[in-house]
Design a protein around this nucleic acid. Structure first.
Length: 854
RNA sequence: GCCCGGGUGGCGAAACUGGUAGACGCAGGGGACUUAAAAUCCCCAGGCCGCAAGGCCAUGACGGUUCGAGUCCGUCCCUGGGCACCA
């Protein structure tokens, strides 16, 4: 065996062993428990980033651990290959997205292979392959026929110069990223998936996902957002016609305090008002150019105008003015609200601003009045006042009574409202899965029949930023209607890439099936037993996948309802970012490795200096590594310099998987040092050494097995950083005894190598063979601590006086608490710290600690 | 703004779900080896006071519960993620 650790050689040998033995190819095997371990597939952006390395190393550690436990483990890999960056790259370089994407896949695949992941590459898939996306299309047409996919208008960002739809990401400060033009909202027809039909089930089932982090379940719960309330109507008359303005409220108990109503800018009443009043029209125009994403919408100044319409209070018949306000969302509830300024903060601000009446109707903790400024107590539940017959009622009683009365008048009823909206999947973009619909002047929207699928996306096009190139391609758009055969137009919208990623995990089971979306094998492998991916996907991707899984279940394609039994959400890899503001106001992002950070008095980074030219840079804080901010650390250099095992060990050791990881290059060196030390220890393992004294052997054995016990516990909790620490502790324990193979060191080293094998598989593979422990460490049995090695005759108690540590006491193991107590009363510690004070109480925590209260 | 996390030495972290705060590492200091350096090995190391024994202070801040709080409760500060067309 070589003296020097050469990762390149070790990794090449191990990888070729796995390849020639087809070590990671798996098939259905009902004799063993199956374990489907999946990491979120990457978008092929060019090269792996640290987040990928972290994600896939965590997944690989769990995969190999479960394999060594004798389970039938599937770990596949694929590519989330459609998406916007490919179009951007195409525009920048004039290369078709297809070629850019496939080149990236080839490069990133080599990187994944270099990292030695135990992947079954036979199952590789890319969502941009027709063999994959045809099943998106097939499934869509089934949903369309069932009404679970449907068409309605939706709002998009419109760049009036490029005449194109922009993604939210492409809108910067309200302007198009390429043209700088003010972006407008535009309503266009789109296809939606009826996820709201599953809202109730998606919510209820969260309680039966013990393998998911509590916080993810909570986020999903809040996202789905079930609220119980009352849908009620304010009658009004328009052009001699009686009409109803419907609103939804969770606070029907405050109805008597409603002093005005407010409608969203997109509400029909707002449109009506705009036709009569140019000021309203201008306001709507302003809203149309205003914020689009919810985060901005929630922070804009609350503004509004009277529509000129007055309706009746449904209880009192009093006149209630109707306003249009920019804080009312068309997408939630009825697109209109009743405003109760006394008990709702937004309504309160709005009423103050426009001098609208504020009428308190709830007795809150601060009293019966609501003087400005706003206090959170005003919104609390309390008993009704100034509410006529409802006075004195508590929240629920009031809601029940009011709902019943409204119902009797036909002006309202209790309703469950969801925050969740249907999923708009149409994208006016080229590089995606074509929506399989043909528009026929005679037959309407006709789904493409199964035998004509897939609708193949032409791959040679290069988008130019002015709309979808498919729309300019008659060979694509002109097609006979599948229903009547007359000339018709093919839909050019493509699907949201979240559709692709909502079921790929099932397809890995049967990538080669050309006849079916999924088959028997998918029913064997599903659900995914362990899913691993970034916390940033906690809501959308995971919710869409849960929805898809249920629809597939209802289509009798799969049996289970939940796609992912256990979920590990890894923390993001963060890095600092710095930029130089150019004279034109653009930001030129400078890579952190080229920056000397500058710190303020508190030691916080507040800016930076570029090393090359001493330019002063602005600091943009810590954030996720991204191309746009030029702050990514390229793992390739790490792998080339230190080898895959060091890179793997480091990302596992640096931080627990769920923590965010603030990247720093220091520390990698230590991981490399540990592997070199391990190698050096093993290289001398067979050299003769001194005879090991019995008590040293016993102590070493105790150390190894107790560390192993803890490591196994940590593994079960997925706390992998301490498993890496455990391996280091084991090597430290073995090194205290220098050289020589004996029963103790052999036992210890074989445990160490097996414990470490999932993290650094290459070096462990080689050492396992070199030291003749066996043929393949991956086939070795997972180590369990020997209870005999853990036995101890004596226990060391910590002795505290009034909760402060004052000493220790070694006590024979078998003693009862009472006996321990009398021993401690006679001990030096008591003599020294207590002297003549009287002992009030002695608390003995068995096996651990004694606290004397004086 | 709303929803969900996190905050422990100079740095990454650990602490068996209320019981010895800082395991294991990184960076640092000292030493050995070397002509020298690198590599490797050994030792030291939370802060303050003290020659030492030892004492006091310390888990973002301030309160609370408890014999005992990094851990539980309350308020506040800082910070990361998500907010539906980035993936």
């Amino acid at each position: 065996m070589q003296d020097r650790y050469d990762p390149r050689e070790v990794e090449r040998d191990a990888q070729s062993f796995w390849q020639s033995h087809r070590s990671f190819a798996v098939t259905e095997d009902r004799a063993r428990p199956k374990f489907y371990c999946l990491s979120m597939f990457p978008y092929p952006s060019g090269k792996l980033h640290m987040g990928h390395v972290r994600n896939y190393t965590i997944g690989d550690v769990l995969t190999r651990y479960h394999r060594m436990r004798g389970e039938n483990v599937l770990q596949p890999m694929g590519w989330d290959a459609f998406g916007l960056p490919a179009e951007n790259a195409a525009m920048a370089n004039g290369v078709p997205p297809a070629r850019w994407t496939r080149d990236n896949i080839a490069y990133m695949k080599r990187q994944l292979q270099a990292l030695g992941f135990a992947l079954d590459w036979d199952r590789e898939l890319a969502t941009c392959d027709p063999s994959y996306y045809r099943w998106n299309q097939w499934f869509f047409t089934r949903l369309f026929r069932k009404g679970l996919a449907y068409k309605k208008t939706g709002v998009v960002n419109w760049d009036p110069v490029d005449q194109t739809v922009l993604a939210n990401e492409q809108v910067i400060d309200g302007r198009g990223w390429r043209t700088g033009a003010l972006v407008e909202k535009r309503e266009i027809p789109m296809y939606f998936l009826r996820i709201t039909a599953y809202a109730e089930e998606l919510l209820a089932a969260l309680d039966e996902l013990p393998g998911w982090p509590e916080r993810v379940r909570l986020m999903q719960k809040n996202w789905i957002g079930r609220s119980e309330g009352v849908r009620l109507a304010f009658p009004y008359e328009l052009d001699g016609e009686k009409k109803l303005l419907w609103v939804f409220t969770t606070r029907a108990d405050t109805l008597a305090g409603a002093t005005f109503c407010a409608v969203a800018a997109e509400h029909p009443i707002a449109a009506w008002a705009a036709r009569r009043d140019p000021k309203v029209a201008a306001f709507l125009e302003e809203c149309r150019r205003g914020a689009f994403v919810e985060a901005e919408l929630a922070q804009i100044e609350k503004k509004g105008l009277p529509t000129g319409l007055t309706c009746e209070h449904p209880l009192t018949g009093e006149p209630i003015p109707v306003w249009v306000a920019n804080y009312v969302l068309m997408g939630y509830g009825e697109g209109a609200v009743m405003a109760v300024p006394a008990h709702d903060e937004r309504d309160f601000d709005f009423a103050l601003r426009y001098g609208l009446p504020i009428k308190p109707v709830i007795r809150h903790p601060l009293g019966d009045t609501v003087p400005a400024p706003w206090r959170a107590e005003y919104a609390e539940y309390g008993t009704c006042i100034h509410s006529g017959k409802y006075d004195g009622l508590a929240y629920q009683e009031a809601v029940d009574a009011i709902a019943a009365d409204l119902r009797a008048k036909g002006l309202g009823e209790k309703q469950v409202q969801w925050r969740l909206r249907d999923w708009g999947i149409s994208r006016q973009r080229y590089w995606g899965c074509p929506v399989p619909i043909v528009h026929c002047p005679a037959c309407g929207d006709v789904p493409v029949p199964d035998e004509q699928l897939p609708v193949v996306l032409p791959e040679h096009l290069v988008p130019d930023g002015t709309g979808n190139p498919l729309a300019k391609m008659p060979e694509f758009t002109s097609t006979p209607c599948p229903s009547c055969g007359k000339p018709a137009r093919r839909e050019t919208d493509t699907m949201d890439t979240f559709v692709d990623s909502s079921w790929y995990f099932a397809r890995f089971a049967c990538v080669d099936n050309e006849r079916q979306m999924v088959d028997e094998r998918a029913r064997y492998w599903m659900p995914v037993d362990q899913y691993i991916g970034g916390i940033e996907h906690a809501i959308l991707h995971l919710l869409y996948s849960r929805f898809f899984q249920r629809v597939m279940r209802d289509e009798k394609l799969l049996e289970v309802s939940e796609p992912f039994t256990n979920l590990l959400t890894q923390g993001m890899v963060l890095a600092e970012s710095f930029y130089l503001e150019t004279p034109e106001g653009r930001r030129e992002w400078v890579h952190p490795s080229e920056v000397e950070p500058q710190r303020d008095a508190k030691g916080r980074i507040c800016g930076g200096i570029r090393r090359s030219d001493r330019a002063t840079l602005a600091y943009d804080g810590l954030g996720t590594m991204s191309k746009s901010k030029n702050n990514g650390v390229d793992p390739q250099q790490l792998i080339e310099r230190y080898g895959a095992d060091t890179a793997r060990f480091f990302v596992i050791f640096a931080s627990p998987p769920t923590n965010t990881l603030e990247w720093s290059d220091e520390g990698v060196e230590g991981s490399s040092r540990f592997l070199k030390r391990l190698w050096a220890y093993c290289a001398k393992f067979d050299e003769p050494g001194p005879i090991m004294a019995e008590d040293l052997a016993r102590a070493t054995r105790f150390e190894i097995h107790s560390v192993l016990k803890q490591a196994n516990y940590d593994l079960s909790k997925h706390q992998l950083n301490t498993v890496a620490s455990a391996a280091m502790k084991m090597l430290n324990a073995l090194e205290r005894f220098r050289g020589g193979r004996n029963r103790t060191t052999e036992d210890g080293l074989s445990i160490l190598l097996r414990l470490l094998a999932p993290i650094t598989p290459h070096i462990c593979h080689t050492l396992w063979r070199e030291l003749r422990f066996g043929e393949d460490v991956m086939k070795a049995q997972w180590p369990e601590p020997d209870p005999k090695a853990l036995e101890q005759d004596e226990i060391e108690y910590v002795v505290q006086v009034n909760g402060k540590k004052r000493g220790t006491l070694v006590v024979p193991k078998a003693l009862e608490s009472r006996e321990v107590e009398s021993m401690v009363r006679a001990s030096d510690v008591v003599k020294r710290y207590i002297a003549d004070l009287s002992i009030r109480k002695v608390i003995v925590v068995p096996g651990r600690l004694i606290n004397i209260v004086v």
